[in-house]
Write a protein that binds this DNA or RNA. Structure first.
Lengths: 219, 219
DNA sequence: CGGCGGCTCCCCCGTCCGGCGGAGGCGGAT
DNA sequence: ATCCGCCTCCGCCGGACGGGGGAGCCGCCG
């Protein structure tokens, strides 16, 4: 006796993509595409009705995006399906959001058919295991989450950077002077330079700029 | 003609674990365990010599941990193997480090044999795709990475919270007063209260405290 | 009804800060 | 040899800030 088929719902706003996915998955024994959706909202209702085992969810969709749809599905259903988020990737930082939304997997559209099938089977079967280079890209991306370190960062001289770090510790000029073993006047100069280069008007704004720029994480 | 077997190296400091993994993997057609290592350093040299397709790498190992070993392997070899990091999980934030090190996959020790095999095959074959609830746990963990919002957060009154947010925008008291449509004196009072409750001495330190506490993300 | 906490505002005072306009030294690039 | 960037300091000034000590008003709760 064959085990019950893995029931899959496809959510993607492009018909061609759905067709392609359906073709690939339907050709597989043990896999059954039971429904499709073209928007996030539709995905939610379709899933609610059909109760599939797996949802292949595109990130970019009209009305409600894939991430929100995933959230809603996982939040409102008792035994939610495993949601696999699908993306073209490229400039996507969606990966992280997908994770947070509770996605069970992540799939690149350029993955070959074989990998796709394998992935679906895997996700359907287990709640444990592995992830991919896609996520590595995420990690990098996340590290890059200050991808455009504002120009001023590179313009700060060594001393100015030191001063800014100390500012971000909440030190007064006098304290910074002691720590850096220079006169208070010098610190004032450096602070002034930092303010000018960061385009801020006082130490508080400079500290904010430092935080926002991820300046404090850069080692 | 059968395709060449996927060549696997096991790196784990516990012999029993290696034995178990070997037993599982060797039983699979198309998989071949070609080597073992008990330390990170050993793993690096074994991999260098045997050039496997896949390395199952324990995180916790003597001398050099799995993360570093992974880094070294990926950095020093031309065609490095896919490294799958293995962990017992539990309190691990290793996941993230593993990612950064360039691991191609992540595997829980409690994964069943079937999933393990599947995972190895998958990683061997593709460079694309998916990851697991293990990573979801990571995401949660990462989100929880400010698990103890300092006590003062809850003590701030509504107005004080508003003021703190405005401070974190780099506004002066006068500007805050205008935005909140109150007198400057009132803002001074609130600021004083914020400083007292946050245990800081000036607005800059208060802003730092707000950032460190994740106060600004809390909606 | 009497606290009590939160919000609003007041004055005074000393300090810190940031803007302005310098200046000297030093090392590397031109 | 000269210039330029960086680091080091100086004085002066006005305004912003933070501390201290109030005060009146409201709404809630016992």
């Amino acid at each position: 006796m064959t085990p019950p088929a893995i029931r899959v719902v496809l959510a993607d706003d492009e018909r061609m993509v759905r067709t392609a996915l359906r073709a690939i998955l339907s050709a597989e024994p043990g896999l059954e595409v039971v429904g499709e959706a073209a928007t996030g909202a539709e995905a939610v209702s379709v899933v609610r009705e059909l109760r599939p085992d797996i949802v292949l969810m595109d990130v970019r969709m009209p009305e409600v995006d894939g991430i929100r749809a995933t959230e809603q599905i996982l939040a409102t259903l008792d035994e939610p399906p495993r949601v696999v988020v699908v993306t073209t990737f490229e400039n996507d930082s969606y990966v992280y959001d997908a994770l947070r939304a509770g996605a069970a997997g992540f799939l690149l559209k350029r993955a070959d058919a074989d990998a796709l099938v394998q992935a679906v089977r895997l996700v359907a079967r287990t709640d444990s295991l592995l992830f991919p280079s896609a996520v590595r890209a995420l990690a990098a991306e996340h590290a890059r989450r200050a991808p455009a370190p504002p120009a001023w960062v590179s313009r700060l001289t060594g001393r100015e950077s030191e001063v800014l770090r100390h500012l971000a510790e909440g030190l007064t000029n006098a304290e910074i002077a002691r720590r850096m073993d220079v006169g208070p006047a010098t610190v004032k100069s450096h602070v002034a330079a930092v303010l000018a280069k960061t385009g801020t008007r006082d130490r508080t704004q400079a500290v904010i700029a430092a935080y926002e720029a991820g300046f404090l994480n850069a080692r």
